[in-house]
Design a protein around this nucleic acid. Structure first.
Lengths: 243, 243
DNA sequence: GATAGTATACTTGTATACAAGTATTCATGT
DNA sequence: ACATGAATACTTGTATACAAGTATACTATC
């Protein structure tokens, strides 16, 4: 099988071919390696990846669910994402996390959650120290996932599982981009997460919303223009760290 | 192919076998025809439905996305839904529609939307007049979908598309149940939708949230106990109208 | 040259075949 | 009686084959 390798391969260790193809295609779409509006053919893809049509079919179905392709009568049309879509994803992330926080207020203690989040941020710092953009990304996603899952609300978890792959993918590209262009940004990224922990701990509704808002706004600012700039995107997608 | 036929067949006219199986399995899971906790085998299902494994596989993947089964190493474990899950679905529906309304406030005119919603409610009334529980259900779903899609927000639409099938399914069962047990409820169902239209028209944030809340609360009240009562569920699932 | 009709090369959806892996069962040895 | 281990019957994931349908291109006709 011939993946483009934009997605960290160690994360695909025990995955089926189908899942590997999904991860690869997703990265290719978000990084514009596959042009928006172009049409993917199951046959051509299966040739390109040197696998049969079965895993390709599976992959395209998953991508359709995520809104990255449209399965038409003939071929899968690449939809991809623009700057506006990133804003919209963050819209719904903010919506979901606000929802979660409302539920967090009803719990008697958040100690376990706080502890877990603190651990993740500490690991983010290590990843930052070693300039490992990918690891920072995964920890970032894990941070937010941990918050969401903490309220054990089945349907908010299902919603999250449907946006998570795209979020993960765009954070990966975003962080790689920052690592090259806005290195100092990471201090703020980490600071924002610490702020979030504090405000959750204080159960201060206003503070939390501010922290959420700050986080998503900084995310936007740091990568401004990235998603409509094919050159930066290509660079980011091919970034492999400095070590 | 041998479907159980719990899902209105006319809606499956041009669907692929895979899609038909999804709809059938979904209804069977929600109506407890397939017991929660039981394990589905691709082979057994393909025998039962007299189709090959391919469409069954597709179906199970879709159901996994919706959280109705868990694809384990051996077999698909039926998760199904309880009364609590219904509450949680309505939680996220309320969250999503509140989000949508916030965006609606920013539009200069909602006339087209109001017109569309009014049309749908009128059709609901006709469906009610003819005691067509299924058609009422579809119009109910269409009503909420119309609101959600009206703001042309890609990711809220994607989220909706992921919960829609389950919502549709549980509304179907719910309405069939009411048609037999709480017939008079429909007046309130329709009234609630009219209320919702009015409050959207007035752009009154408070009124809308009240209307949303009322709608979802009444939904809950009207079908209280249904989801933990296998007998009622079975009756509802087999309901075919009085004509 | 324009148009209608046909042939061809694609497409998807389904069926089937196969390989690799896992649970279960049953027999064997202690 | 109980543990160990091999045989069996399952499972999934992938590959391949086929049927039915659709777009494209070409040819024949006006």
């Amino acid at each position: 099988m011939d993946l483009k390798g934009l997605y960290p391969e160690k994360r695909l260790q025990d995955s089926s071919i189908g899942q590997q193809v999904v991860a690869d295609l997703r990265m290719r779409i978000l990084s514009r390696d596959l042009e928006n509006g172009s049409t993917l053919s199951e046959n051509k893809l299966s040739e390109e990846y040197n696998v049969s049509r079965s895993p390709i079919r599976d992959a395209l179905k998953v991508l359709e669910n995520e809104g990255l392709v449209q399965l038409k009568r003939m071929g899968a049309k690449v939809v991809g994402i623009t700057e506006k879509d990133i804003d919209e994803i963050n819209d719904v992330r903010l919506m979901m996390e606000s929802f979660v926080f409302k539920h967090l207020l009803e719990e008697e203690s958040n100690d376990a959650l706080i502890r877990e989040l603190t651990k993740i941020v500490e690991m983010m710092k290590i990843a930052f120290k070693y300039k490992d953009a990918d690891e920072i990304s995964f920890k970032d996603v894990e941070f937010h996932e941990t918050i969401i899952k903490s309220i054990h609300h089945r349907y908010i978890s299902i919603l999250w599982s449907n946006v998570k792959p795209v979020v993960e993918c765009f954070i990966l590209l975003d962080m790689r981009h920052r690592m090259e262009e806005n290195y100092e940004d990471f201090h703020r990224v980490i600071h924002n997460h610490e702020l979030l922990i504090q405000s959750i701990q204080k159960k201060d509704k206003k503070l939390v919303e501010e922290a959420f808002y700050l986080n998503f706004r900084d995310v936007k600012k740091g990568s401004d223009g990235l998603w409509d700039d094919p050159v930066s995107l290509k660079k980011a997608s091919e970034y492999r760290g400095k070590q």
